[in-house]
Design a protein around this nucleic acid. Structure first.
Lengths: 219, 219
DNA sequence: AAAAATTTTTAGACAAGGCTAAATTAATCA
DNA sequence: TGATTAATTTAGCCTTGTCTAAAAATTTTT
């Protein structure tokens, strides 16, 4: 049985290995875990001894097959609980993460499976992230694409943005657009590449500059 | 913010003070917590320093007003989750305790309140125990008594059990006894305190051990 | 390729929560 | 009441997960 801390490390390593591809450095993991590199070294040794990650001094670490399986189980629980909180308990999608961080550590496979069934075997969480099934598998279909690639009448869920400037976030906030926001393309204008979209029951026109920076998942 | 261990101690002290009335001794609490008296002394000092219990060396401890409030919040969460597990996720009433032991430590007052509303403000949990409201208040109506206190020819309805072990639940299941089951006392044997009861058209003899653990409401 | 800079690891400490063994206080019995 | 027994506390140690400071390895620079 893993401690919460061990579980959180495995989850963080999984997240980093999804984006990076290469072995995860001690410093990178320390930053992700909001802790010190020396603490990471200790934990990484322990997880390696237990067989959940591979680790060579000074060479970073990476999940083993078993470690990955466990990470996916935690992610599965996290996302199922998020669905529960939003769909059943009427939480906003922006406030569920913290609570799910706690709920993901509840140990009871039966609970997870019953919850999944109760929720109707959802494929994605309220942020649009895929939910692994019992066996740790999930659909990779949902690759994120820039909003500009969506065709008329298609819809998607905001999954991220490219530009990290606060100006841009200000702009998004102005229209109440955040992670998980649903966007439907109403019309596309080829003469200037702008798109007319429907968001939160409002129609907005986005320049191609903007529509290339907003990343969505097709629905 | 309290640790899980601190919360469990407060819960245990509350449970003991409900039955005993007097201050709770170190040994008693150690037994309840399945730990050593020396560990209890340490924890009890800490909880006293924090103002959740009153404690004088060699004199045992008792909850302060604040401590009691916290204990009731934990019990409230525990019982609400039990209702959720049984009513919504189709768990048996005998298998929810362990899972609720974990869920009761989730920190989010908003979650608790939303859950309560979602469940329709239940008054009792699946074991028949009352659920404290937001302010720590609950109805003391439905007083239940152990089956052993019933006289010959009296009947009652099962409203809860004291022992939380799965062995005991197994035993009850074997005889098809659950919440709401009607039991009639056919005979009582004073020489060993056993009772002969009629349940589901079958006669069963219960040892005093068992008849003290089954709680019923007179009918 | 040697020096400088960066990354990573080691060493030693601390707080929480538990344990064992020994000491102390309280309670009981003769 | 004094002695014995039982309950409780203290002292010291262990593990987990964290930290700081110092040492070592790796990488980058010149």
């Amino acid at each position: 049985m893993l401690t919460q801390s061990e579980e959180n490390y495995l989850k963080a390593i999984y997240a980093l290995s999804e984006t990076g591809g290469e072995a995860i450095s001690t410093n990178l993991l320390a930053e992700k875990m909001a802790t010190k590199p020396s603490s990471v070294t200790d934990m990484v040794k322990k997880l390696s001894d237990k067989g959940f990650i591979s680790y060579q001094k000074y060479q970073g670490c990476d999940l083993t097959v078993i470690g990955k399986k466990i990470a996916l189980e935690i992610i599965r629980k996290h996302r199922l609980w998020e669905v529960f909180l939003v769909e059943k308990l009427n939480f906003g999608w922006e406030e569920v993460h913290e609570i799910a961080e706690q709920l993901e550590h509840i140990q009871s496979p039966k609970l997870t499976d019953h919850l999944e069934e109760y929720l109707g075997f959802p494929k994605v969480d309220p942020h649009g992230d895929p939910i692994p099934d019992k066996n740790g598998l999930f659909e990779v279909l949902n690759k994120s694409i820039p909003l500009s690639e969506l065709n008329v009448a298609e819809k998607g869920i905001v999954i991220g943005v490219e530009d990290g400037s606060s100006d841009f976030f200000q702009f998004l906030k102005r229209y109440n657009i955040g992670l998980g926001t649903e966007i439907i393309v109403a019309e596309k204008f080829s003469f200037d590449q702008s798109v007319l979209v429907k968001v939160n029951h409002t129609e907005i026109s986005f320049s191609s500059l903007v529509s290339n920076k907003i990343f969505i998942q097709k629905r």
